[in-house]
Computed example of a mutant assay.
Amino acid sequence: MRGSSGMIRGTVAIAVEDLRKVYHVREGGSWRGRTREITALDGISFSVAAGEIAGFIGPNGAGKSTAIKILSGILRPTSGIVRVGDLVPWQDRRAHVARIGVVFGQRTQLWWDLSVAEGLGLLRDIYGVDPERFARNRARLTEALDLGGIMDQSVRQLSLGQRMRAEIAAALLHDPEVLILDEPTIGLDAPSKLAVRAFVRDLRRERGTTVLLTTHDMHDIEALAERVIVIGHGRILTDSPFQDLRATTLSERILEADFVTEPPVLDLPHGATETMRDGRSVTITFDPRLVPAQVLVAQLSAVPGLDDLRIGRPAIEEIITRFYADHAT
């Protein structure tokens, strides 16, 4: 099936093979000083299928930004193979930028002193979008991203949430086949984050756009990404569905028990640990591989004064933090 972006779903939209980037940094603050090498990317390989949403995450200094800049055509790697569609980003820059959209949460591609409408008009000329397609896309994006009330405002007057919606419109004006989102919800309030996530899901479903998402907001990953690529120390640490990462990194479950009075001392089975006691509530962490949930629930249900039980999973931030800690060296 061919999506509206033009790529055939299931084909490879982004291919990265043995990608390396080494920076040479001069020490001592002088041109006479010695240089040392810093390896930002140490032979990473991964691919993203057309129409897929993939999360690309890692701690600060892991190599994410370098990889994104290479994929965007901004940087040239030291070695390795990269293709976005059938193009090499840094060799075919003009054709490449016409096929991709990039949103950098901490940078803008619009002009501060121009209105949103004027900025989109300039991008129409830069991308060479014909008038009919421009009018159609502008109308579609204005409605989908609720831009009608800010089209005549200058970018500097916009709130962060308004600006991010305008930035997404700017990135999609020319119907890109691949959308690279770098911290797209940074600094946004909860309603704006939900709106951006919903739009990205609709974009993938309706137009088949390939999305590579890098963010420190793990709720973005949980809400959008079908799989997660974790990078650390310039290397790929794992590439798997998020649920697999959850199962292999932090399989524990959380059980919260509320009592009508102060909770009694609990005699818990092996594999279950009381981790917090707050007023009439007790929080228990347990490993379902050692103690099945139904066994623990049955035992607690027999405790006098029990009022309510809730079972959940650790927060996604805790899972990712544990994974980073396990691969710290």
Rank of each mutant, 00 (worst) to 15 (best):
188 L>F: 00
304 P>W: 07
34 R>I: 02
235 R>G: 08
243 Q>D: 15
291 V>G: 01
97 V>D: 00
93 R>M: 05
16 V>L: 02
62 A>P: 15
84 V>H: 00
274 E>T: 11
60 N>R: 10
116 V>S: 11
144 A>E: 14
130 D>K: 13
305 G>L: 06
270 H>K: 08
204 R>L: 00
121 G>R: 10
69 K>R: 15
49 A>S: 14
110 L>N: 04
82 V>K: 06
217 D>P: 06
30 S>C: 02
220 D>K: 04
70 I>E: 00
99 R>H: 14
31 W>K: 10
235 R>L: 03
23 Y>H: 12
140 R>K: 11
43 G>T: 14
325 A>I: 07
322 R>F: 00
209 T>G: 02
172 L>Q: 06
153 Q>Y: 02
25 V>H: 09
136 R>P: 01
192 S>A: 15
104 F>I: 05
47 S>G: 08
219 H>Q: 13
225 A>D: 13
209 T>A: 13
83 R>A: 09
13 A>R: 09
159 S>K: 11
26 R>I: 08
22 V>F: 05
280 R>M: 08
103 V>D: 09
251 S>N: 12
174 H>F: 02
43 G>Q: 13
170 A>C: 07
95 A>S: 11
269 P>H: 09
201 R>L: 09
228 V>F: 01
72 S>M: 04
220 D>M: 08
39 T>M: 07
239 D>W: 01
322 R>W: 01
102 V>M: 09
228 V>T: 15
185 T>M: 10
309 L>F: 08
35 T>A: 12
320 I>G: 03
233 H>R: 15
180 I>R: 06
33 G>M: 05
9 R>S: 08
241 P>C: 09
180 I>H: 10
60 N>S: 09
95 A>Y: 00
14 I>G: 06
251 S>G: 07
307 D>T: 03
211 V>Q: 08
318 E>D: 15
131 P>A: 06
146 D>N: 12
75 L>P: 11
279 G>F: 03
94 R>D: 13
148 G>D: 12
205 R>H: 11
224 L>Y: 03
